[in-house]
């Protein structure tokens, strides 16, 4: 049976992890590779590296980092953040990334998705959507790291993107992100039940029960979290042990 996936996310700036992390076993808390190795040994099913480096020249550091990650970890990983061209993607994949995620650039130029899936296959193209529920109870797409509102409904954009060739959706609820009150079950379920591709839920994880809920009630294929893993509020082996009676999970 295919299992539900647990995915820690690491924010990267200039080749280093940002946000605090709390791992005594790490010699250098800023090195993403050391953290990635620990997570993969603990049973993470995949990793996501989100590059928030602003400048183009410093993005070269990202390629060097991808190379080091690929050389050192034996599970799949996705790289995202500011990807806007086929060339960006080719470089990341050639250096060992398994998948890339696109967000704002794909929304502004949907043809990018088609180009990427034709060139590299749908299986390595992840669409990241930042979404927010407005007062009208509809979920809308936000761009530029959540700073720019659009008038496009999340379900419409997700469906269009699947038709264009994305292989997976990484859905982050801005209403839930950082709250530790649980994932956005309604929009996650809507997407997961109406799309033919896997949906990764993100934003709001605070307890092990939240993971159970997003898998069982919202039918998510994977769940992503950052700070609860970095601060060891939940550790992956304990989370998986908890989930095992409820959902298929890789132990």
């Amino acid at each position: 049976m295919l299992t539900k996936r647990i995915i820690p996310c690491l924010d990267i700036k200039d080749g280093r992890t940002v946000k605090g992390i709390n791992f005594e076993s790490i010699r250098d808390a800023g090195d993403p590779v050391e953290l990635a190795i620990i997570y993969s040994e603990q049973g993470a099913d995949e990793l996501v590296f989100l590059d928030i480096t602003a400048t183009v020249e410093k993005r070269k550091t990202l390629v060097e980092l991808v190379k080091r990650i690929a050389a050192n970890i034996n599970i799949p990983f996705t790289v995202g953040g500011g990807i806007s061209t086929v060339e960006d993607v080719a470089l990341l994949l050639q250096n060992g990334a398994d998948k890339i995620s696109v967000n704002t650039a794909a929304f502004k130029t949907p043809d990018l998705i088609e180009e990427l899936s034709n060139a590299f296959g749908s299986q390595c193209v992840v669409l990241a959507i930042d979404t927010k529920k407005e007062d009208d109870s509809e979920w809308y797409v936000y761009l530029n790291g959540g700073r720019t509102k659009t008038f496009t409904k999340t379900i419409d954009w997700a469906k269009q993107a699947v038709d264009l060739g994305v292989g997976e959706i990484l859905l982050t609820s801005m209403n839930n992100d950082g709250t530790k009150n649980g994932f956005a079950l309604d929009i996650t379920a809507t997407l997961s039940n109406s799309l033919s591709v896997p949906v990764i839920a993100s934003g709001g994880a605070g307890t092990v029960e939240h993971f159970k809920d997003v898998f069982q009630s919202a039918n998510a294929d994977a769940a992503l979290a950052a700070s609860i893993f970095h601060y060891k509020e939940i550790e992956i082996p304990e989370l998986k042990k908890y989930l095992q009676p409820f959902v298929n999970i890789r132990m």
Binding site: M1, L2, K4, R5, S196, V197, P198, A222
Partner: peptide, 11 residues
């Protein structure tokens, strides 16, 4: 009912 492609860990 199952998603295609199959992506993830299976036994």
């Amino acid at each position: 009912n199952l998603k295609i492609p199959q992506i993830g860990w299976n036994n």
